[in-house]
Design a protein around this nucleic acid. Structure first.
Length: 787
RNA sequence: GCCCGGGUGGCGAAACGGGUAGACGCAGCGGACUUAAAAUCCGCCGGCCUUGACCGGCCGUGCCGGUUCGAUUCCGGCCCCGGGCACCA
């Protein structure tokens, strides 16, 4: 479409090829992930070619090839030297039987997917990218992205999660040493209502309490067990235990008890919170459960008291009560006054807090880009120098599911320190595959450049004018790419380009039913194409079995098509049966691209029939026998549809473009004979249809004698003269209900319209004997008589 | 649990800044052509009521309520489904 509009269009394709699914397939089939991956690339490339997407294959790249991932490693060493990549401990899921780290996806109901063993948390050293360095810019720049869906920008905003609040210190002494427990709160106005503090299990206070009290130690251990996913943590029962330590309220001097609680996250803020049960739902739940005091300090819409159960109004802003000198102040004045008083005592100040955490990129897995670090006992962690890059990943290994194969391979990890030349150990962790996918779009601009990550050609093409991806990438992938673009900018690689994608289209997910067998004790996902289902009268699934061997399968509900659930539908069957143009047309016609879609190819026949009708109609057409006259009515319809179709392309509603093509053909079929309308209409139809069904329209365009190449023809635009109308149809309503319609001259005035409307017999039935209080006329649309 | 979306005929959907709900298709039903089938063409196709037939009426966009001359569209509350929650990518 844009090429026909005269633009210089670059449409590349490549393969995001590292990652867990390749390792799993490798284990299942006992072949190296590399081979499995390259075979799949070959299959998919053939399929994409058969669909005729006009891709520039000279720019093809794969993230698992050394000439690509070399630059992951190169940029990592640059970030490491700047302190934007650094090492600290991180928490992972540990399978105690396989002695291996599990991805969140591999933890099913708290157990390892292969072993069924209860998963434990484990702290290990990892490398992190300091994405928080760019938090403020990543947030602020969202306002400068008019081509992004509001929904995605909102999700990113909430994810980055800037909150302005107050850091409050609660002094205490431990082992005769004066210390301060710091908490962050966005509700400093409720500080006078704080009745206890709660800390995370990993907090130093919890650790010291655990040393003295075995009960606390047992509870801390309990909290540390289990998986690491936030969704899971948020749903567990809120539990806590007193540490026996108390802190001093910074303003009242009161003693407040400190509890360890499983709902406090070490990763956010200070890993500790002040609890105000009167005005926070979670705190109230906790206080009621453990008999802790509740002290209201805000006048809320329901009054001064906060009787259980919790009501949302308790959390609303209001003026302060029971707060001594702060009584009567509203939210902001109260926060200002309290922050000032805390600052005077050195026990607090206003603070900005981010929800965004730094990006942990270490993976204890084989099929990924090696992290270019050498561990030397005398020099520490040394980045691999440029002239030794890339650190190549051996491609012949078959993982067995127990730990990282690289760590069992001395010829990989035994090395020399680049600094002192002494014996050293190479890092065996690989990078998160999100690193690979955070900058590939820029490499497409210059995939053959051997000397640098990107060159000046990237500055010509970037930013990407139209990026397309699933809505599931709304946060992580898109945020990491925005971070990487800034990293590359600040390395001087693409000066002035801060955002990678000017316009973003987020596709809806394609959903399908998924099924598994668990005969072997663990889930084996069965493709829906291999499942026979019995349903009741309402379509609900009664039972299902694998078609190939009759094994019973469990229905796991409807969800995203994914590699992990093996519920994808291969478009090849559609291409084989109907051809590429029908597959493409149907995909466009089925629904707008942003919709989620439950996949069904039941109605492909309609798309096939339409294209066949276009073919047959064109075959019958004879240019020589055309009259030189236009059919005004049909020409109007065609140009109206063309106008709508052009609007719809801009709105990215391709399903109505496809139906517009159908309407144009329907209109053409009403013409009694070939004439100028047929000729012009066919020419418009071919061009409108060419981005959707290029193979067929390319052929027909020539056969019809319109020219050599439809894809080089100018994009059709409606003729304003064809859209002129002398009369319009108006709907007549009485009290907002449809009672009839009238045809009026385009220039008719209000009085004339009203007179015609009142003359309509059905309208008279509903107006008769009643007083018309008001007449609403919407030009070109309707007249409403209010009685 | 938290954040973001979605819910319209039997099905996919349309209605673009409140203005004719269901365009365009699929499936279905009836008919034409045919020895027959396929293909193709024509007609009907949200529910209920009224009518001999037209004409027409009432209800209807997940549920409850509100704003408005008028609500699929705006507002409040709820239910269900999907996406994300930092190691699937």
């Amino acid at each position: 479409y844009y090429r026909m509009r005269g633009y210089n269009v670059l449409q590349p394709m490549g393969w995001d090829a590292f990652g867990l699914p390749a390792e799993n397939a490798a284990m299942a089939n006992k072949v190296p992930p590399a081979r499995w991956t390259y075979d799949n690339i070959a299959y998919m490339k053939r399929q994409l070619k058969s669909l005729g997407f006009a891709l520039d294959w000279e720019r093809e790249l794969a993230t698992c090839k050394p000439d690509y991932y070399k630059w992951n490693q190169w940029i990592f060493t640059r970030l490491f030297k700047k302190g934007l990549a650094y090492k600290k401990t991180g928490v992972v899921n540990w399978d105690p039987v396989d002695q291996t780290v599990l991805a969140n996806e591999q933890v099913i109901e708290g157990r390892g997917w292969r072993t069924g063993a209860l998963v434990e948390k484990r702290e290990i050293p990892m490398y992190f990218f300091r994405i928080t360095h760019y938090a403020e810019e990543l947030l602020a720049a969202l306002d400068g992205l008019p081509g992004w869906p509001e929904q995605v920008k909102l999700m990113q905003k909430n994810w980055i999660g800037k909150s302005e609040g107050v850091r409050v210190g609660f002094p205490y002494s431990l082992d005769n040493e004066k210390r301060v427990l710091w908490v962050f709160t966005t509700r400093a106005d409720t500080l006078m209502g704080a009745t206890f503090c709660a800390v995370a299990a990993e907090h130093p206070i919890a650790a010291s309490a655990a040393r003295k009290n075995p009960e606390v130690a047992a509870f801390v251990e309990e909290c540390k067990r289990g998986a690491v996913m936030e969704a899971e943590l948020a749903q567990i029962e809120k539990k806590g235990m007193p540490t026996g330590i108390s802190v001093t309220h910074p303003l009242t001097g009161e003693k407040l008890p400190v509890w360890v609680a499983n709902y406090v996250l070490m990763g956010y803020g200070e890993g500790a919170v002040m609890a105000v049960p009167a005005h926070d739902e979670r705190d109230m739940e906790f206080a009621l459960k453990y008999g802790l005091p509740v002290k209201p300090v805000i006048r809320h819409p329901l009054g001064d008291k906060v009787p259980a159960p919790w009501k949302a109004e308790y959390a609303e802003y209001g003026s302060l009560i029971n707060s001594g000198k702060y009584d009567g102040l509203g939210y902001q004045p109260a926060v200002d006054a309290i922050a000032a008083d805390l600052e005077a005592k050195d026990l607090g100040e206003k603070q900005v807090q981010w929800r965004l955490r730094d990006w942990g990129i270490s993976r204890q897995r084989y099929w990924g880009c090696p992290i270019p670090i050498v561990h030397c006992t005398s020099c520490g962690d040394v980045p691999v120098p440029d002239d030794q890059l890339p650190v190549k990943l051996p491609e012949h290994l078959v993982p067995d599911g127990t730990g990282n194969p690289l760590a069992k391979m001395p010829e990989f990890y035994e090395t020399k320190c680049p600094q002192c030349g002494g014996g050293a150990r190479r890092e065996t962790d690989t990078m998160d595959t999100f690193v690979d996918s955070s900058w590939y779009f820029a490499r497409f601009c210059c995939p053959d450049q051997p000397k640098s990550m990107v060159d000046e050609r990237a500055s010509y093409w970037m930013a990407v004018d139209q990026y397309i991806g699933g809505i599931e990438h709304a946060i992580l992938h898109l945020l990491y790419s925005r971070f990487f673009q800034r990293v590359m900018r600040d390395e001087g690689l693409m000066p002035g380009v801060s955002e990678p994608f000017s316009n973003l289209l987020t596709q809806g997910m394609v959903l399908a039913e998924s099924y598994y067998t668990d005969a072997s004790g663990r889930r084996e996902w069965v493709n829906p194409a291999d499942v026979s289902v019995e349903r009741d009268a309402k379509g609900k699934i009664l039972c299902a079995q694998r078609t190939s061997d009759g094994a019973p399968v469990v229905y796991d509900g409807i969800g995203t098509m994914s590699k992990s659930k093996n519920n994808g539908v291969d478009p090849q069957s559609l291409i084989d049966k109907y051809g590429a143009d029908t597959a493409r047309f149907y995909t466009m016609f089925a629904s707008p691209p942003t919709n989620t879609l439950e996949w069904s190819d039941e109605s492909v026949d309609g798309s096939y029939r339409f294209l066949k009708k276009v073919w047959d109609f064109s075959a019958k057409f004879s240019k020589a026998k055309c009259a030189e006259t236009f059919d005004r009515k049909i020409r109007y319809q065609i140009h109206l549809e063309l106008k709508k179709a052009n609007d719809d392309i801009e709105r990215q509603k391709f399903n109505t473009v496809a139906s517009g093509c159908m309407k144009i053909l329907n209109a053409l079929e009403e013409l009694p004979d070939w004439d100028a309308t047929s000729r012009e209409g066919l020419s418009i139809l071919m061009r409108l249809l060419s981005p959707i069904a290029p193979h067929m329209t390319h052929h027909l365009w020539r056969e019809l004698g319109f020219g050599e190449d439809v894809m080089r023809a100018p994009w059709p635009v409606p003729d304003p003269a064809a859209l002129e109308q002398d009369e319009v149809e108006l709907v007549v309503q009485v009290n907002g209900k449809l009672r009839g319609s009238i045809r009026v001259p385009k220039a008719a005035d209000r009085a004339a319209i009203e007179e015609l409307a009142r003359a309509n017999p059905n309208v008279q039935r509903f107006v008769a004997g009643q007083n018309v209080k008001k007449v609403v006329v919407v030009p070109g649309r309707l007249i409403n008589l209010v009685v």
